[in-house]
Amino acid sequence: METNTSSELPPGFRFHPTDEELIVHYLCNQATSKPCPASIIPEVDIYKFDPWELPDKSEFGENEWYFFSPRERKYPNGVRPNRATLSGYWKATGTDKAINSGSKQIGVKKSLVFYKGRPPKGIKTNWIMHEYRLIGSQKQTSKHIGSMRLDDWVLCRIYKKKQMGKTLQQKEEYSTLQFNDSTITNNDGEQEMMNMNLPRTCSLTYLLDMNHFGPILSDGSTFDFQIHNSNTGIDPFLKPQPVEINNYYEADSQSTITNQSIFVKQMHNYLG
C-alpha cells in the first residue's frame, strides 16, 4: 500500500524519531490497525526488492527510508525469517538491542547488513537496516498452523552508510608536501636532500670535494660566506689539509688559479 504523503506534511518537516517513538507511536499503531501520527511510512515487503530499489518505494526521505514490512518464515516449522532478496540477502550483525518505555521492554532492535550474492560467498555492501519488532509478535502469528507468516509487521529503517577516511588523492598530496619540504635546489636546478650531515672532522679538501661553499668565482669577484660550527660540523681546532685544486677545477686561465689560491689561503687563515 502506497499513499501520497507529501501534501500532508508541513513545510520544513523532518522525521527523526527515537527508537522508543518508532515502536510506541508507529509500530504499535500499525500492529493494532490504529492510525499513525503521520502517514509517512508505507507498507512494502522489503524482501521482494533489493535495497537500492527501496527509496523509490517511499515518497519521503533523502538519506534514510522507513517501511512497514511483513516477515516470512525460512522453513515451515521454524522461527528463522527468510531474508533473501533478488540479488542478495540481509545478514544480522551484533546483538539485539532491547527497546524500553520506562521500565517496561516494548520491542527489539536488530541491525543487518546487505550482501550481494548467496551465502557464504556474499559481498558486503554499505546498505544498513535497523529492524524493529514488538515483543510477543511472533506468538500471535504462530497460532496459524501451516502459515509461513512469521510477523505481521515489523518496522524497517534503511540507509546507505557513507565512506569514511582519507581519499587516495589526499594521501598523495600529503606525501608530495613532505618531499618538497625536505629538498633544496642547487645552482644547476637539481634537487638535493637537506638532511645531508657532514662529519664532525672534515678538512678543507673534503668541503671542496662536496662543493659545500659553492663554486669559486673565476671573474675576480669576491663573495661573503659564514661558517657555523653548529650547522656544518667543522672542528675549528682541526688543522686543514693541503688542497689539490687541479683534481676538481680546471684552470682555464691564470686568473682562475690566482683566485683559487687566494681563496684557499683565506680559508687556511680562517680555520687556523
Rank of each mutant, 00 (worst) to 15 (best):
P10K: 14
Y270V: 12
Q140A: 14
H212C: 13
Y89D: 08
D45P: 00
R83S: 11
G220Y: 03
Y159G: 01
L22P: 02
M148L: 11
E173G: 06
N246Q: 13
I158R: 01
L86N: 13
S142H: 12
D96N: 11
P70M: 07
S261F: 04
W52E: 10
G146H: 06
G214Q: 10
E59T: 07
E131M: 04
D56Q: 15
E192D: 10
L112E: 02
N126D: 14
D209C: 06
Q178M: 15
K109M: 09
P17Y: 03
E72M: 12
D188I: 01
M129N: 04
S7P: 10
N211F: 05
S101D: 13
S87C: 08
S182P: 01
G94L: 05
D96C: 06
V79Q: 14
T3F: 03
F213P: 00
Q178F: 06
F67D: 00
T3W: 01
M129W: 00
R157T: 00
S69N: 07
K91F: 09
K97D: 08
L207A: 14
A84S: 10
N180Y: 06
E72R: 13
K160T: 06
T125R: 00
T222M: 12
D235E: 09
Y66M: 03
Y249G: 04
Y75I: 07
P236Y: 08
L54P: 04
L86A: 13
Y47F: 15
G220D: 03
A31F: 06
M267V: 15
T5P: 02
D252A: 13
K265Y: 03
K57A: 04
G78F: 12
G272Q: 14
L238M: 12
Y132P: 01
K139D: 14
E190K: 10
L27A: 01
V79C: 07
S33G: 10
Y89A: 03
Y66K: 03
F60T: 03
T3P: 07
I184Q: 09
Y75V: 05
E59Y: 08
T85I: 08
S69C: 13
G102P: 03
I158G: 00
P81D: 11
P236F: 09
K97N: 07
I145H: 10
P37M: 11
S261V: 07
S221I: 02
